[in-house]
């Protein structure tokens, strides 16, 4: 049976490779792949990588935009965490007693979480900007909803993967479902929840930067303005600030993880 499956997988690989080769024939290689001055523009952009604009006002602007980007990401993530905890715990089904109510609860809340993350944060941003205008709330909600959906889904899976024995033992000491949640499930998954949330926070900073292309201010917005003015050196200043942000958060998350491991 297994060898048959492996066989099938090889067929699939070959099929996909052939499909890819065939798709290459669909490309018009003469024109359309790159516009005429594309290569020289790309050269200019990457040359600017080594000469970022380090003048005082650009640095200040970059620092301010980084702060804004970080603030959106942090606020969005905090809200996402609250949403994820509530919906994630409900979607894990550990609070319901009967088998049928558990299936119902799992199904419906997993559905809600699926809806939240099916729509990309950029699309949520468009929708919220269209309804709220260019306000920080648009950015925060646009981040919080899909990230809440992603985190909630993962939290629910983590809770469902908690080993059964300690939970059964808690039930035997007379603990209610809610008491089991706080004494069994949550302590067991706390560390993985924190490290996954930190990873998602890092993603949220990147998303927040991208989202400001919509016009919400922040690093992405500045990158767009500088690109439009063909100031590639400024673009790189902003990009370096973004990289620094992500590296700092990664360092923080490593620190947290090391402390939790003790």
């Amino acid at each position: 049976m297994l060898s048959f499956d492996l066989h099938k997988r090889k067929f699939l690989t070959v099929f996909l490779l052939l499909l890819f080769a065939w798709s290459l024939m669909g490309v018009n290689w003469q024109e359309g792949v790159m516009h005429s001055s594309g290569i020289s523009t790309a050269g200019e952009i990457f040359a600017a990588m080594f000469t970022p604009d380090l003048s005082m006002d650009i640095l200040l602007l970059a620092a301010e935009s980084s702060w804004l980007t970080l603030a959106y990401a942090t606020a969005g993530m905090s809200l996402a965490l609250i949403l994820a905890l509530i919906f994630g715990i409900l979607a894990s089904g550990v609070l319901s007693s009967g088998k049928r109510s558990r299936t119902l609860m799992k199904g419906s809340f997993r559905g809600v979480l699926g809806f939240m993350r099916a729509i990309h944060e950029l699309v949520w941003a468009w929708l919220f900007v269209a309804s709220f205008g260019l306000s920080p709330y648009a950015a925060i909600f646009a981040l919080a909803i899909p990230y809440g959906g992603i985190l909630g889904r993962i939290f629910a899976d983590m809770i469902n993967d908690v080993p059964e024995e300690p939970i059964k033992a808690l039930r035997a000491t007379g603990a209610s479902r809610l008491q089991c949640l706080f004494y069994g499930y949550l302590p067991s998954v706390k560390n993985s929840m924190i490290s996954y949330t930190m990873y998602r926070y890092e993603c949220a900073v990147r998303s927040s930067a991208i989202m400001s292309f919509v016009g919400l201010g922040g690093l992405g917005y500045q990158i767009q303005l500088s690109l439009d003015d063909l100031h590639y050196d400024e673009v790189w200043t902003f990009l370096y600030f973004l990289i620094i942000l992500v590296v700092i958060i990664d360092g923080w998350s490593n620190m947290l993880r090391r402390r939790m491991a003790q």
Partner: peptide
Amino acid sequence: FDLVGQLPVIHNVLAGRLADWGFFKSL
């Protein structure tokens, strides 16, 4: 494997009282 490994010992011991405690006291 009957205990919650990530909790400090004292909470695993006090879990024996959960039958008598209400939700807020146990929290």
